[in-house]
Every structure is written in structure tokens, then in C-alpha cells.
């Protein structure tokens, strides 16, 4: 369902040219949970951005369910993100003025699909992430683990084909980390969502179906 071919990405950082990705070819099957690991600066996040339709490659191809992400314009990419992709970030990033429930509904809000059905789904999801009693709280009233659980619910609300998580446990203690990873795998399996986890934690990576290790912008086989 997700496939890349000889993916390259370079940046201009001042005078120097940084080659973040140097020919990534991979294939991820529907329903798979894949962990991308590697040391800092190996290109994990860059890869995630390319796979998540946030950025376009310098060269090479990315296909998401057959859509050639490398050749789509911004509007099409946005539409894909809106419909098929869910994100979980290291720093949670809930909008502080919206309630937890509103935050969860944000992707649907942006695509104008907030309806009673959607609300019911949001409540279900919040129940699944054990935040049903917190749905009308504001983000600043929640702990880190709770925030990340809410973020997971937000990432899944629109039933994306793929969930991209960028260091989802990077800012959490180990108890919360375990809970979050457990939640992601459980919900992904339940919703049949493909998951791509970027992490440098071996214990987190170990929970995945498969690990892809990146070193210096290349896949370490």
C-alpha cells in the first residue's frame, strides 16, 4: 500500500548541501506495523514527512495506495493527508483552546465532516484511549500521556489508511510510553490501519511487525 523507489531528499543548509535520504526503496503492506529506527540525523523524520505527503522528494517516487505523492500538487497532497493519513507527534500538539473532544474532531472539522456520527465516533475513540471522562477538558489540564492518547485519537478519527507517528514516546515516561505504544498497536490492528513508527527506542521498535533501520539516509539491511 505504501511504496518508495530510490527516494532522495536533499536540503540546502546555508552553503552546504545535506543529503538526508540517499535512495530509499521500501514497501509497506496494508495493516503492517513498521518501526523506522536509527540514530539522530539518519533521515527518519525526513522519510516520515515524505511518506506523510508533507514534503516532496528531490528524486524518486512515493506511492500511497497507488497515488504518486512525488508528483501531486499541494492541494492534492492536502486532500490525501486529510483523508488517508493520521499524524502523532512527539510534542502532542493539541490546540490549547479546543477541548479534548474538539481536538480529536479537528481533522473532520477541517474537511467539514463534523456530524452526529462523527461525534459518536470521537466519543468511541476517546473511550478506547480511556479519556471519555476527560473529553470536555482543555489540553493544559491533561498529563503528557493523556495528551498523547488524545493525539492518537485525533490521528485515527478520520479512519486513515496509514498512521504516521514521529517519536510518539519521546516525551513520555516509560509507563506512559508502554501504554501509548500498546494503544497504537491495539487500535491499528482493530481499525486495520497501517502504522509507521519513527523511534530510536529499541523497546518500542520491538513491538512492531518489522523494523527498518536507517543510517546516513540509507536502509541498513
Amino acid at each position: 500500500m505504501l511504496e518508495t523507489r530510490d527516494l532522495h531528499k536533499s536540503y540546502q543548509a546555508g552553503e552546504a548541501r545535506v543529503d538526508a535520504l540517499r535512495g530509499i526503496t521500501l514497501k509497506i503492506l496494508a495493516g503492517e506495523i513498521v518501526a523506522i529506527t536509527g540514530p539522530s540525523g539518519c533521515g527518519k523524520s525526513t522519510l516520515l514527512h515524505l511518506l506523510g505527503a508533507l514534503d516532496t522528494p528531490t528524486s524518486g517516487q512515493v506511492y500511497l495506495e497507488g497515488h504518486p505523492l512525488h508528483s501531486l500538487n499541494d492541494d492534492k497532497l492536502t486532500a490525501l493527508r486529510r483523508l488517508k493519513i493520521g499524524f502523532v507527534f512527539q510534542f502532542f500538539h493539541l490546540l490549547p483552546t479546543l477541548t479534548v473532544e474538539e481536538n480529536v474532531l479537528l481533522p473532520l472539522l477541517l474537511s467539514g465532516r463534523v456530524n452526529p456520527l462523527a461525534r459518536a465516533r470521537a466519543r468511541d475513540l476517546l473511550t478506547s484511549v480511556q479519556l471519555a471522562d476527560r473529553s470536555h477538558h482543555r489540553p493544559h489540564q491533561l498529563s503528557g500521556g493523556q495528551l498523547q492518547r488524545a493525539a492518537i485519537a485525533r490521528a485515527l478519527i478520520h479512519q486513515p489508511s496509514i498512521l504516521l507517528a514521529d517519536e510518539p514516546t519521546g516525551n513520555l515516561d516509560s509507563a506512559s510510553s508502554n501504554a501509548v505504544i500498546e494503544l497504537i498497536t491495539r487500535l491499528a490492528r482493530k481499525e486495520k490501519t497501517t502504522v509507521l513508527l519513527v523511534t530510536h527506542s529499541q523497546s518500542v521498535a520491538a513491538t512492531a511487525d518489522r523494523q527498518i533501520q536507517l543510517v546516513d539516509g540509507r536502509i541498513q539491511s
Binding site: 508533507l54 492541494d75 493527508r81 493519513i85 499524524f87 507527534f89 477541517l110 474537511s111
Partner: peptide
């Protein structure tokens, strides 16, 4: 934050 909104599917 704009980046997140965009990631979440907000259009230009």
C-alpha cells in the same frame, strides 16, 4: 502550529 494544521489536513 501551522505545520501541524497542515499535517492534519488543513489546506492553504
Amino acid at each position: 502550529e501551522i505545520g501541524i494544521l497542515r499535517a492534519t489536513g488543513a489546506s492553504r
